[in-house]
Design a protein around this nucleic acid. Structure first.
Lengths: 216, 216, 216, 216
DNA sequence: GATGAATGAGTATTCATTCAT
DNA sequence: GATGAATGAATACTCATTCAT
């Protein structure tokens, strides 16, 4: 009866896994990705060895964090897609996704440095991407979004907003909303005075290349 | 003529100083501020001791880099102010300043992490700020810039663009120009469909507080 | 029985701790406090990391050495106090304490340089002091010790003897006993030809000030 | 006429030499032998290169300091020898020599560590030794000094006093005089209660061996 | 001769990772 | 499985010494 003896352990293991991920999110948020795994372990209330049992190395732990966060953003995107008004849907997505990321500053660093293009991350991205694309294309079909933006612009926009949020820190934690508002105004369909976008959007293949070329 | 015999040595020293700053910019750009000074020294073709002779510690070197760069941006701002059309002036400034920063990606990390509020940095910031304020206020006086943006928004905008540039890396090094265009469109005076900015701009005192509260 | 499974590890750790302290005593004795912790680690047969696991930094290691040694001296003082004859008690203490210190020459440097007034050291000193004071006062009460010496003179006397021992090194490792004998003769109660002590003894508060003002 | 062009230079050089020695004494006194030659040079108001022109390396500089100081002590001994009363002569010597050494704390460290038995030091010692021996032997001949002390005990006595002075630092800079008084009382000829010296004095040859075996 | 710039080996300390218990 | 002790490579920084000016 392997089940009887496995299940409890798996439950413990899963609990520990969650504890570690949670601790890692806190610690990395507070002190950046440079924080030590000893600190993560201490925060999680387990030994370092346990961290290494759950995650083969630091990078993998960081990637798991990334994956989890991407999952949350995918959820946000899916819920936004359910919104009937396509402009509201897009704005809601940008707002909620940015809000998630802004509240969790360590994440920006993760987005920037921790993605070695490993499979799990690529798969998580692959789940998010089509939803975002759907949001963008529906808005353009409905004539409420300028036609020269692409779905690949969305990650950049979120990334920029997170950077603003991280910089402002606790001094002005909501200031990114100003820049989201400005950007949203700039996403409206072209009218008099609209500047043409001077460079083509990134192709999906380029997004992949970017992820693969991130440092470290 | 003691000058004649003093200068040559100083020239060497100054040359090395420039070499080190240049190497530091390259190395920090490529591998982030975490790169070692041994690597900087190797890249500069000097011994570590020489780096430490010119800059008492790593932070000081980083600050020198930052200060130099801020100086360049101040120059860009001053030249833009000479432009008669106030909208063109503002756009030119954003474009040229962002171009400077995007070409030198390590700078973003410096902006984020290396400013311990030391005097030299604050002084460099103090020189840039009034010029930017002049650009912004003139544009608003001339009715070409939405009235709810503030001069303190400009550093955030540049910062976001640099983040985009850094993320895109060599795969799409000019993509930040898309986002600058979008943001510029969002800076136009309010018209139908313009969203109100949901949070007040940062006060100058808050900008100071942000600089002082940066991590590390 | 979690104890049974905990202890073995702790035993190893404790063993290593002892090994490191022992190695540190040897290395510091041989090459002074300037010796590197790498050397201590090598001598102890462990990695540097292990030294740092046991002692957060070099100073703490040095202090631990100091504390342990002070403890031994306190033991010597307590055993001497049990001796019924008060002169013999004092002489025995000086002899045995000096013998301990002379055998472990690195200690002199520790006494001189390593005491940053940290709590553990002060506490260790606080345990020794009253016993020494009791030895001195009893001898004076019994009229066998000159009345113008104070208990604060004892550390100085030991310190001087250790300096002599350290200087003589292995060439004449017992020579400090000559100077102890000379000093002991000088501690006898005043008689014809006794010179008055020209400066007052250090007050307890001055002893503290000395410890706090030690260089480095 | 090499004289005409040499002399002025030699005067400058000699001046610099003296400046450097003086600066070294101050710096080493204040911060120990570990102080850097850059600091010595700065204190002397010359470049490091000049220090190295005058003294081939740090050890040699330290030895020169030692030699100079031994010279001063020799002068003290010689003047003491001129004193008609042989006990007063010995006491005066111990007092003045110790006073010289106590005022110059860095010297103790020099005495302890810097003497590699090089020729110049040995020669300086060779000049001091017979004078001290004369002081001791005359006092013994006149029956005012215990007969079991030897002239080789004198350096040890001075060394111990210097150690006490260094330990007391600025808190109680004259406290060594207490211990000199106690020791002097112990040097009186044997009478009732005098303890025999338990170990033979160091032979002159042993003193040499000690100097040669000093660490570093 | 004098100067101070350059060098690089050496030191304290940290931290990802392994492994005995 | 979990634990935390051990490891050692890596990093910032110092300083004796050399050498071009």
């Amino acid at each position: 009866m392997p089940n009887a003896s496995d299940r409890p352990l798996r439950r413990d293991a899963a609990l520990n896994r969650r504890r570690i991920l949670h601790a890692a999110a806190e610690v990395f948020t507070a002190r950046g990705l440079g924080a030590s795994l000893d600190d993560v372990a201490r925060q999680a209330g387990v030994g370092v060895g346990t961290v290494y049992r759950r995650f083969p190395d630091k990078d993998t732990l960081i990637e798991a964090l990334f994956e989890e966060r991407l999952g949350a953003i995918t959820g946000v995107a899916e819920r936004a897609l359910a919104e009937p008004d396509s402009w509201t849907a897009l704005v809601t997505f940008l707002e909620n996704a940015s809000s998630l990321m802004a509240a969790d500053r360590g994440l920006r660093e993760i987005l920037m440095y921790a993605s070695h293009g490993r499979d799990r991350i690529l798969r998580a991205k692959a789940r998010l991407q089509p939803v975002v694309t759907a949001l963008v294309e529906r808005a353009q079909r409905d004539g409420v979004l300028r036609t020269d933006v692409a779905s690949t612009d969305m990650p950049f926009i979120q990334f920029m907003l997170t950077a603003a949020a991280e910089y402002a820190g606790d001094v002005s934690p909501d200031i990114w909303r100003r820049y989201l508002a400005i950007i949203i105004d700039g996403l409206r369909p072209a009218r008099a005075g609209t500047s043409p976008l001077p460079v083509p959007a990134a192709e999906p293949g380029q997004m992949l290349a970017i992820m693969r070329s991130l440092p470290r």
